[in-house]
Computed example of a mutant assay.
Amino acid sequence: MAPLWLLAMLSLAGGFGLALGWRAWARHRGVVDAPDERRLHATPTPRGGGIGIAIVLLAAAPWLGQGSAWFAAGLVLCAGAGLVDDLRPLSPLAKGLLQAAGAACLAVAYPLWPDLWGAAVGHVLAGVVVLVMVNFWNFMDGSNGLAASQALFAALGLAALAPTLAPAAWLAVALAASCLGFLPLNFPRARLFLGDVGSHALGFAIAALLLMVAGTSGGSPWLLVLPVSAMVLDASLTLLSRARRRQVLWRAHREHLYQRAVAHGWSHAGICALYAAWTLAATGLALWLARQPAPWAMAGSGMALGFGIIAYSLLGRAWPRPAATGRTPHGSPTG
């Protein structure tokens, strides 16, 4: 088995080189995102650059040991659904079915706490986790560097919470390094977008890390949500707000907190830094709470999430949603 540093270097080079090659191909073939009323960019930009991350993760699958074949199959289905949609529009139903098939593959290998409520429920809950992470990362991929940097920090944070290095560390290193390789093309100025293939791959890998670490996390499994809380809070609270106002949930919009911040004058770099600061602080808190008695860990993580909900509400008032948001009759279901 190769050392972690070699896996990191190969993943870094792969994430950058494959993205760079895809950018040239996408520009030649016209696979670009054009500016419109729901997007935050002003010039046509090639999409689908996250295919490099997906390929790196697929290449790293053999290092995951037991469950690696299911991981690879699920990744191909989820990232493949995104790739098809990047190349030509895919209906929400078809995309959802492919995501569900990919989620089922990963759930077979890594059921969520089957000892607690039985294998069948554990498989179902694991599938839900995968679908949530895939779609949340998709929704949150709309600002330069945000989705890739959050996946990088979350991967390292989740690996740090694992009581043993393998196999979560191998996946975390491959994910973090490939994201680092992609970021120079996406941040601070976006010359290439992840596309759905990239956001799906990131969400799928984060879900895999969550399920792997949850299986070995001992008495403090609730701490695992803290490294992903920035993405989860924004995506889930925005989704609940839209549901409360009876809007079509899969229709593209500009209501996420990061989108509203950019609309009110924040730079993409500022938004990326703000979310990174939250994730690093939340991960540091999780690592500290992991050394405390279980009741303190539960209370501390609950208070952190409660503070995040309050912060979302206060910032939402400072950055009110656009008056016409969510009523555009066209667009893909991404955030």
Rank of each mutant, 00 (worst) to 15 (best):
A2V: 07
A2P: 10
L4N: 13
L7Q: 15
A8D: 02
M9N: 11
G15T: 04
G17N: 03
W22L: 04
R27G: 14
G30W: 02
V31P: 15
V31M: 06
V31S: 13
P35S: 06
H41G: 10
G48E: 02
G52M: 02
G52N: 07
G52V: 01
I53M: 03
I53F: 08
I55A: 15
L58N: 09
A61Q: 05
L64V: 08
G67P: 00
A69S: 15
W70T: 11
F71R: 14
A73K: 14
A73E: 13
G74V: 10
G74A: 11
G74Y: 02
L75K: 04
V76P: 06
V76R: 05
A79K: 01
L83C: 02
L87G: 12
R88L: 07
R88V: 01
S91M: 11
P92H: 09
L98S: 03
A100C: 03
A101W: 00
A101Y: 00
A103G: 08
A103R: 05
V108K: 08
P111Y: 00
D115I: 10
A119T: 15
V121C: 15
G122V: 05
G122K: 04
A126T: 02
G127M: 03
G127K: 02
V128W: 05
V129W: 06
V129G: 12
L131K: 10
M140G: 00
D141V: 11
G142L: 00
S143F: 12
S143E: 09
N144A: 08
G145A: 12
L146F: 03
F153M: 13
F153C: 06
A155I: 00
L156N: 10
A159W: 00
A160G: 02
T164Q: 09
T164R: 13
A168M: 05
L171A: 03
A177E: 00
S178K: 02
C179Q: 15
L180M: 04
L183N: 06
L183D: 03
A190Q: 11
A190H: 05
L194V: 07
L194F: 08
D196S: 03
G198E: 09
A201N: 12
G203H: 00
F204R: 07
A205R: 00
I206G: 07
L209N: 03
A214E: 03
T216G: 11
G218Y: 06
G219A: 09
P221L: 03
W222K: 11
W222G: 09
L223M: 02
V225R: 04
A230V: 08
V232Y: 15
D234N: 11
S236M: 12
S236T: 12
L237Q: 15
R242T: 08
R245T: 04
H253S: 01
E255M: 14
H256C: 02
L257M: 08
R260K: 04
V262H: 14
V262C: 14
I271F: 05
I271P: 05
C272A: 13
A276F: 08
W278E: 11
L280S: 07
G284T: 06
L285I: 05
A286I: 01
L287F: 01
W288C: 09
L289F: 03
R291Q: 04
P295R: 07
P295D: 01
W296K: 11
A299D: 01
G300E: 06
G302D: 05
F307E: 10
L315Q: 14
G316A: 02
A323I: 04
T325V: 13
T325P: 10
P329A: 15
S332M: 08
S332Q: 13
P333G: 15
